[in-house]
């Protein structure tokens, strides 16, 4: 079993993901399809929410991955800042567009569900607002990477931005508990006794969450491979110019 740090070597990362990426991508497709088909076609309407309960199978996994993607970027950024681990900086860069789309899906599905249930598409509720700020942080992070020519300087500055944005990632997860106010309810799933969701919904939701997690992993692996190649290309061009 290779040490984790061996994956700092781009060649080792590329060799491993050659076989790993198709496996994860296929698993992501199958598991997500099962979760969403189960949730959409085979779950009953909720006695209060009616058919809008089916939106939970998109909203909760997307919102979970929006926050987890930022957490992964945080860990990767710390690896970069502490160990100068190039692959981890590129993995953080590759994760940002995926997190951005997950956040957007969370915001859209939340608005579409909120309109019939809360009577409004949007409210300046602590969780919704912190989630919107997280979305803006994703945009800023991607823009910062695009704006800086030198990859190491880009990795340094985006890592710092990631540390700052973590405040909003944490807030968007726990805002409903911190302030105990606003429209957004607490966690849909909990290990605490007296959990509110019936297994008829919980089971497909867990499958869907696993599927979204696998989608994230597959897209980050694919994106990191692209970033490694792009960086190699840049290095070769720079070397040629200097020769």
């Amino acid at each position: 079993m290779a040490s984790f740090w061996e994956y700092a070597n781009p060649l080792k990362f590329m060799r491993t993901t050659d076989w790993l990426l198709p496996v994860v991508a296929m698993a992501a497709l199958v598991v997500t399809a099962i979760g969403l088909i189960w949730g959409f076609f085979l779950t009953p309407d909720d006695f209060r929410q009616g058919a809008t309960v089916k939106i939970v199978f998109l909203h909760v996994p997307a919102a979970m991955m929006a926050i987890n993607a930022w957490a992964m970027m945080l860990v990767a950024s710390l690896f970069w800042l502490i160990r100068r681990h190039h692959v981890s900086a590129l993995a953080a860069k590759a994760a940002a567009p995926v997190g951005l789309v997950m956040t957007l899906i969370g915001l859209i599905t939340g608005a579409v569900w909120g309109q019939p249930m809360w009577g409004t598409w949007w409210a300046w509720d602590p969780r919704l607002t912190s989630f919107l700020i997280l979305f803006l942080f994703y945009l800023g992070y991607i823009a910062l990477w695009a704006a800086i020519e030198d990859p190491d300087t880009g990795a340094d500055l985006t890592a710092v931005l990631c540390l700052v944005g973590t405040v909003f990632a944490v807030l968007s997860r726990y805002a409903a508990l911190f302030w105990n106010q606003g429209l957004h309810q607490g966690a849909s799933l909990s290990v605490a006794p007296g959990t509110r969701m019936d297994w008829a919904y919980k089971a497909p939701l867990y499958v869907s969450m696993t599927g979204f997690g696998l989608i994230f992993v597959a897209l980050v692996l694919a994106g990191t491979r692209t970033e490694i190649r792009a960086r190699r290309m840049k290095a070769l061009v720079a070397r040629e110019r200097m020769a």
Binding site: I55, I108, V112
Partner: peptide, 12 residues
């Protein structure tokens, strides 16, 4: 709620 649910799935 057909419109809302369909919209959520199509958009996502």
């Amino acid at each position: 709620y057909a419109m809302e649910v369909s919209l959520a799935y199509v958009a996502s």
